[in-house]
Amino acid sequence: MTISPDSVVFWQWGWFSLNATIVFTWGVMALLTLISWLVTRRLSTGTNFSRWQNLLEVLVTGMRDQIRQISHQEPGRYLPFVGSLFLLIAMANLLNVVPGYMAPTGSLSTTTALAICVFVAVPLYGIVYEGPLTYLRHYIRPTWLMLPFNVIGEISRTIALAVRLYGNIMSGTVIVAILLSLTPYFFPVVMQLLGLLTGMIQAYIFAVLAMVYIASATSVRQGNRGSGNPPQSASEPQGEQHG
């Protein structure tokens, strides 16, 4: 019984092995891009438009609304990153119903890669949004004593992000595999359906958590702006002392 799609190798060339994870990820990417291209090739700006366009519009609008709700900011700059996370994971999990398909999200390599993307994106968004100094001051809040804990928290939540997704998807696959050998026919199907639900929920959780992390990194200035000027001016000399 193969647990990880990483171990299914199609082609090996030196140190690079083309395993099932990469191949199926390409498949998912191709499917998403193809659907998007087919639908957005002929977009209607009037009131008459196709069901597929409607589906995509609902999807995009829903994601934008979610981002807006979580971050209290305009979703424009976050949508490509967070939306793509959600779509990739959701599609990768959904295709589990296809026989012979192995979800790339069931590989710790994939989830780690996505978690690393979030890990990099959070400070990137923070720095781009409010400048490096203001962003780095994050880590010494409320006092500089908190610096190591903040750094540990940053790393641990990234690991948690990767392991959570991997564990859920992998466990689903494993449970179905075990049940198939114990009670075939009916019960595994139910578990498969449950696995679909879990997959969608995990996709949602992953995207929302990524958004929450990014929002927390970009909301410092936002928070100061909200509470007024005196606290900001009071904290600024203090920060410069330490810098």
């Binding site: 990483d6 390599s109 890669a113 993307c117």
Partner: peptide
């Protein structure tokens, strides 16, 4: 598999651009 990890990161970045 760190090779796969890096490949997936690239894949994801490409997907972001494509989408």
């Amino acid at each position: 598999d760190w090779v796969t990890v890096s490949a997936q990161i690239v894949n994801f970045l490409i997907l972001v651009w494509l989408l």
